[in-house]
Amino acid sequence: MRERKWVQEILLYSIVFLLTLPIFILLIWSFTKTWPWPDLIPKDVGLRGWRYIIDPHTKILKILCFSFFLSLAVTFVTLLVSLPAAKAIGQHNFKGKKAIQIFILSPIIVPPLAVAMGIHVKFIQMGLADTFWGILLVHLIPCIPYAVRILTNVYEALGTRMEQQARILGANRLQTQFHVMLPLLAPGLVSAGSLVFIISFSQYFLTYLVGGGKIITLSMVLFPFIESGDRAIASALSLIFIAITLIFFLLINKILRTHLNTQDYFYL
């Protein structure tokens, strides 16, 4: 027994180490000017990477805020749309359910590239191209399938009995959803919300296409630096990127936990 635990711990720490190693490397990179091979530790340190981010001329902080709120809005709308869909699929049987499930999941199967062009043309006609709302809508395409998928599983696991119990005790439909189902769904909402936020936050192609270069998000700022090999700035931006998603996860988790008092389980 003791030995097994030992092995488990070594395994666990190795995994944690391997997963966090890139973050340390990013951290070192963000403080270097050059880091030529075969140096194990860079000799030229500097704050160029970080200075670039804070510099008001580059508007990085502004873009960062915009990106954050865009993804927040996408997450909110995605969950709002996905909840009823997942409820219908997870709790009820109806004709054509399989077909609808495949239809909802199709954006994961079919590459977005295939549909994005057509959508772009339509958006131009409708005046949605190059706008915040256009980007928000187009981000829903890769986000909704994941949210529906996760929440469907949660609804399936929950079943309808808790709802029935609430109704029996005098709660109307709205009260039942709000006072009973929402708290029970909270762990699933944390999981789905975090995933959707990351998908939206790291979206490059769809934002680029529909935004027409006029709407800039953090991932669009990041890509050219990675491409051109400016590692210091790219690393600093990447760290910001990771920090934002982590902050979002902790935030949504904290909010849902304290307000809804749910237990320690996640649907990942």
């Binding site: 119990q165 029996i168 708290p183 029970l184």
Partner: peptide
């Protein structure tokens, strides 16, 4: 009418 189920169905978050 109020029904008490076999497995009680207490609300776990309350």
């Amino acid at each position: 009418t109020v029904m008490v189920f076999q497995d009680y169905l207490l609300f776990p978050h309350l």
